[in-house]
Write a protein that binds this DNA or RNA. Structure first.
Lengths: 237, 237
DNA sequence: TCCTGTGAAGCTTTTCACAGCA
DNA sequence: TGCTGTGAAAAGCTTCACAGGA
């Protein structure tokens, strides 16, 4: 079937899980595993076999009945679904600790992304190199991207500067933004934004651990219950 | 009413939104705003007024009919709901770029968290200071936490080490973990884990920007449509 | 037999619309 | 009048259960 052009909206949670499957498949491939069933995936990812099959079914048919899925092939196919099969240039603004951490992340390649330019407005950072990428002055963003043509931007600047930075990115042709600054960006509807806010994660975690069952016992260091799935939130990866 | 002890499960998405409301309220308070209505919150957060009211209604009644909500008071109340009203100690393992970025984050206090100890196994990092916190040898984790009694841990180590690190944290009494390493942790059910995986965010973003409406136009640098809400995912903050 | 793909059922979350209070 | 709180309706997502191909 392979209706890569899906008309019916694919649920956002399904998309997030696809990325998890990718990661899992990469690992399996490294381990030399050739074939995997939805039930094995369930054991590895904690996402139910039915869910796995349903998620894929939004896009087409990828498995072989009685057998399962070809690890390498499925990886390629999911990459194609997520449109990460060919390299995409990415701009990063903000060469602070977080920016540097992201640049140093070794997994970009495997997911088809490449940070092609880094910008900052701090003169002490401009001109320095981070993982072989030179930090450019923020003012050059628009000019630089006229050559690079990146459509994705990452914002790792302090909250106060995030909005103007976002505006610049959009003016430079960026249509998708990952925002690590803890502020809500106001941008044209044509721009897709995803906010990443780890302090919210902590707040939710705080709620969850304190409401599991009344006040917590002194110290649950039993270590039993091993090999069981951990409780998991929306941001499963 | 104020049934702070909610029996009926609160939807996870609602909890995530509560954290967003917090952030928004903090900002409003700084700006000197005293009262806010659900409709004004909608304009600020992009989350619908009905959703805002419903989210709060899981916990009780917080507003005044005809008026709205008291900014300062609601902030305190949400903090109480999320159990972040009093300071909670947090352990961090992995003093790499990402770990340092997190330690340097200025918002911890406002959300009631405090990083009380940082661990790493790299001898070159041990003993160094990051934002006035000394990096301790990883082996000391259990002993150290016997005094500190932290119940929350953050993992910012390379993927290969995440599982053993998580096991150590749990053995040291941690019951809630934020995992930044791109691997699925297998832990006892009694432990709550939240995975943060920004590369997945990018993958989802890639899908979203490429499926908005066929192939992208050359460069949508119009800049109109201003002041409109940007598309938003689950991880709204 | 084994495992996929999928309609239908079941459950969760969001939105609607309005009663009720200031 | 203005805005909250909330049942009820609608939408969205997940699970079930089984038909059907390898």
């Amino acid at each position: 079937m392979n209706r890569l052009e899906n008309n019916h909206q694919v649920p956002l949670p399904a998309l997030e899980r696809l990325a998890s499957y990718m990661r899992c498949l990469m690992q399996l491939e490294q381990e030399g595993v050739r074939t995997v069933s939805s039930l094995e995936m369930e054991a590895l990812t904690g996402i139910s076999a039915a869910q796995f099959r349903k998620d894929l079914s939004h896009f087409g048919e990828f498995g072989k009945r009685g057998i399962g899925y070809d690890v390498g092939k499925l990886q390629d196919q999911i990459a194609e679904l997520l449109r990460i099969q060919k390299e995409q240039p990415v701009l990063l603004v903000g060469a602070g600790n977080l920016g540097r951490a992201l640049i140093a992340f070794p997994g970009w390649r495997a997911y088809g992304f490449r940070i092609v330019a880094v910008f900052d407005k701090d003169p002490r950072k401009i001109g320095t190199q981070i993982c072989r990428i030179r930090v450019r002055p923020f003012e050059e963003l628009a000019t630089t991207n006229r050559q690079l043509g990146a459509r994705i931007g990452i914002i790792t600047v302090p909250p106060g500067e995030a909005q103007p930075v976002a505006d610049c990115l959009v003016a430079a042709g960026v249509v998708g933004i990952i925002n690590f600054a803890p502020v809500k960006l106001r941008l044209p509807r044509s721009v897709t934004v995803r906010e990443v806010c780890f302090i919210s994660e902590l707040a939710v975690l705080s709620y969850l651990i304190h409401t599991r069952e009344g006040p917590l016992p002194p110290a649950d260091v039993s270590g039993d219950g091993h090999g069981v799935e951990a409780c998991e939130g929306t941001t499963a990866g």
